[in-house]
Design a binder for these strands. Structure first.
Length: 335
DNA sequence: TAGCCGTGGGC
DNA sequence: TGCCCAAGGCT
């Protein structure tokens, strides 16, 4: 298998080095390349990315407007997890109009949240957001926390989302390492086209080293880097000709080698598809649904039972009177 | 850590 | 037409 060519390192080069990918021996015996940024100091990278963003990258997205609240930023970040911007926009508009504060969502039922989630995908996020709203009300007086470590204690808020909320809602100087940023840095610094697995500590260190000292500028840089990955340095068809970092990019220098990626499990016929079909049937009606309706949504009885059981286990579905099923978890006072 | 968890648009 | 992908998180 072909290995990527490290960026050229000149002897006696200066000390500005950023490390990315897996530093040290990796499981397959590869040593990560060290990219010498002498020819492209961190400041120049930051400057180029910010200049590109100001001229070409800036999209008018509702969660980027100056009047957004931390709560709205949090909602947008959860919705954007593994979900394209274009599909988030309409659901975000509905959610933020209906539940503009943590208090308002906390006062709703989990079933309302799941129903309003529609077909965004990964519907457990609706439950998590609802639980997060209640936690924010109960534990933080209705104020969205501004510390990444505290944010990450909320359901559905992991390291990325916590950093994003802290940086974008509170202008905290926090490295925001999402899949776009990982791809940009991996390609630029080490020539790896598709970083895989959980982000490594070395990747966080590389991003920290790049991050401007000024908190506001750091947040701008994070948005710009994410945008660069989303619009130019894309996974499938990168627009290197339009990229402000091409001339110093290790991956570009190496001739853009293909790299390898992990195969993903088939979706058609999977339990995931079955769950989705059952949830779609449950969303279709405002009232509890009969087992016959669910059978029409997913005919295979064994898989239907399994999928339904997992949905109930997740709290996305619960039993209703008359052997029917409804959206949302069983309520504590239902008995 | 790997497997699991939705959905629909684009190529 | 399928395959690939999109601002992850949880167990």
């Amino acid at each position: 298998m072909r290995r990527n060519t490290p960026a050229q390192t000149r002897p006696g080069a200066a000390s500005t080095r950023l490390i990315t990918g897996s530093a040290g021996p990796d499981p397959r015996g590869r040593r990560a390349a060290l990219s010498d940024l002498t020819q492209a100091p961190a400041q120049r990278v930051v400057h180029r990315v910010l200049a590109w963003y100001r001229r070409h990258g800036r999209r008018d997205l509702p969660w980027r407007r100056s009047d957004v609240t931390p709560w709205q930023v949090l909602v947008s970040e959860v919705m954007l997890q593994q979900t394209p911007v274009s599909r988030v926009l309409p659901v975000y508009a509905v959610w933020t109009a209906r539940w503009p504060t943590p208090q308002s969502l906390a006062a709703a039922t989990p079933a309302d949240a799941v129903r309003a989630w529609g077909r965004l995908g990964y519907p457990r996020r609706a439950l998590w957001l609802h639980q997060a709203a209640r936690a924010i009300v109960d534990r933080f007086g209705g104020i969205v926390p501004d510390e990444p470590g505290v944010l990450a204690t909320l359901p559905g808020i992991g390291r990325y989302t916590a950093a994003a909320v802290a940086a974008f809602a509170y202008r905290r100087r926090v490295a925001v390492l999402d899949t776009n940023v990982r791809r940009v840095l991996a390609r630029f610094l080490t020539g790896v086209p598709h970083p895989t697995g959980t982000p490594r500590a070395a990747e966080h260190r590389s991003l920290d080293a790049l991050l401007p000292k000024n908190a506001d500028r750091a947040a701008q840089f994070s948005v710009a880097l994410m945008e660069l990955g989303a619009l130019i340095c894309t996974s499938r068809s990168p627009g290197c000709a339009r990229c402000p970092l091409t001339t110093d990019c290790a991956w570009h220098r190496a001739g853009r080698p293909a790299g390898t990626r992990r195969p993903r499990a088939p979706y058609t016929g999977s339990d995931r598809q079955a769950r989705g079909a059952l949830l779609a049937a449950l969303r279709e009606y405002p009232h509890p649904v009969s087992t016959a309706d669910l059978a029409r949504a997913w005919p295979d009885p064994t898989q239907r039972r399994r999928a339904l059981a997992s949905l109930v286990s997740d709290g996305l579905v619960s039993c209703a009177p008359g052997g029917r099923y409804q959206l949302g978890p069983a309520t504590a006072d239902a008995t």
